[in-house]
């Protein structure tokens, strides 16, 4: 019961933040709304017993990536969005398509929810850091190393792309 209430509260905060992201005209406001979304998502992760994930969500996503976004917004001094004529395809085909998809998925989920069960926190050692670490460094070692190379490449790319032409 408590879980459900908590879930609903944080879920609503998430959706509100997301909608605000769409509605705001200045990108900085959108960025701040996104931070709100991420924070509430972290809380929902906690509800699901994913401690490690919640932590890195706050540290990496909200703390590093969103900060990067805010830096760039402030650097480029992007102003409010102007109204320009956009793509008609997006409006005519894209929006209805996505609405339909969302509705379909939603309907499926609601009707099929009987087969699925519910989620609880079974044991307190479920999302523990050392269990994740064990998985990461044993079964998923290769992907881990590759992602470190990926980050290296990303750093190099960002540095090259960001350099001024001289």
């Amino acid at each position: 019961m408590v879980h459900q209430v908590l879930f609903i509260v944080f879920g609503l905060i998430c959706v509100a933040g997301a909608i605000n992201l769409l509605l705001q005209r200045h990108p900085i406001n959108s960025a701040l709304s996104l931070v709100v979304v991420m924070a509430s998502l972290a809380l929902i992760y906690l509800l699901l017993g994913a401690e490690f994930v919640a932590a890195i969500q706050v540290i990496v996503y909200a703390g590093a990536i969103m900060v990067l976004f805010v830096f760039v917004i402030m650097l480029l001094n992007a102003g409010e969005e102007e109204r320009t004529r956009g793509s008609r395809v997006a409006l005519i085909l894209g929006v209805p398509g996505v609405i339909i998809l969302a509705a379909t998925v939603g309907w499926l989920l609601v009707t099929g929810s009987g087969q699925l069960g519910s989620v609880t926190i079974a044991s307190s050692d479920f999302g523990e850091t050392h269990a994740i670490a064990r998985l990461l460094f044993k079964d998923f070692l290769l992907p881990f190393e590759i992602t470190s190379v990926l980050i290296l490449i990303a750093i190099m790319g960002a540095v090259v792309l960001g350099k001024r032409e001289s």
């Binding site: 008609r88 395809v89 085909l93």
Partner: peptide, 20 residues
């Protein structure tokens, strides 16, 4: 069209079609 948003839209439509 050279318009990024329309490309984005096509991507979205394609993705939606596959999902459907």
């Amino acid at each position: 069209s050279g318009n990024i948003r329309s490309y984005a839209a096509w991507v979205a439509i394609g993705g939606a079609a596959v999902l459907a």
